[in-house]
Amino acid sequence: MNKYMLYLNSKRCIGCHGCEIHCKTNKRLPVGPILCEISHEPLKMVGGIPKTEYRFRSCYHCEDPYCVPVCPTGAMQKRDDGIVFVEQEKCIGCMACIGACPWAIPQANPETGKVVKCDYCLDRVDAGFKPACVTKCTSHALKFVSLVEL
Rank of each mutant, 00 (worst) to 15 (best):
R57S: 15
K90Q: 12
C94M: 06
P69S: 11
Y60K: 13
Y60G: 12
V70S: 08
E89D: 15
I92H: 03
R79L: 12
D81F: 06
D81G: 04
K90Y: 03
R57Q: 13
E63Q: 14
C67T: 05
C91K: 10
C62I: 05
C71I: 05
M95S: 14
D64M: 09
C94E: 09
D81L: 08
E63Y: 11
V86D: 09
E87G: 02
Q77N: 10
I83A: 02
E89M: 10
A100E: 00
P102S: 00
G82T: 01
A100D: 03
T73H: 08
C62T: 01
V70N: 01
P65E: 05
R79F: 04
Y60F: 10
I83Q: 04
V84A: 14
E63T: 12
C71M: 07
F85L: 13
C97V: 05
R79S: 08
D80I: 05
E63C: 02
V84N: 03
P102F: 00
Q77K: 15
P102E: 00
C94H: 04
E89H: 09
C71F: 09
P72R: 08
T73V: 06
Y66I: 00
P69N: 10
G74M: 09
G99M: 07
V70P: 02
C59Q: 01
E89Y: 03
S58I: 07
C59A: 12
G99R: 11
T73L: 05
E89T: 14
P69C: 08
T73A: 00
P102T: 05
R57T: 15
Q88D: 14
D81Q: 04
K78V: 11
M76R: 10
V68M: 08
C94S: 13
Q77S: 10
K78N: 07
V86T: 14
F85E: 04
S58F: 09
C71P: 00
G99W: 08
G82W: 08
Y66H: 14
C97T: 09
P69M: 10
M76T: 13
A75M: 10
C101G: 06
P65S: 04
C67G: 06
E89L: 08
D64T: 14
C59L: 03
Y60V: 12
P65R: 02
M76H: 12
K90H: 05
V68A: 11
V70G: 02
M76G: 01
S58P: 00
S58R: 10
Y66P: 03
S58D: 13
G93L: 01
P65K: 02
G82C: 03
V68I: 11
E63K: 14
C91F: 11
P69A: 11
C67Y: 01
E87Y: 12
C97S: 06
G82H: 07
A100M: 00
V68T: 15
G74T: 08
C91Y: 11
C101R: 07
G93A: 03
Q88W: 06
C67F: 03
I83D: 04
D64I: 13
Y66T: 01
V84F: 09
P69I: 10
P102H: 07
G93M: 07
A100Q: 00
C59M: 05
F85I: 00
C62E: 02
D64W: 11
A96Q: 13
T73E: 13
R79H: 07
Q77A: 14
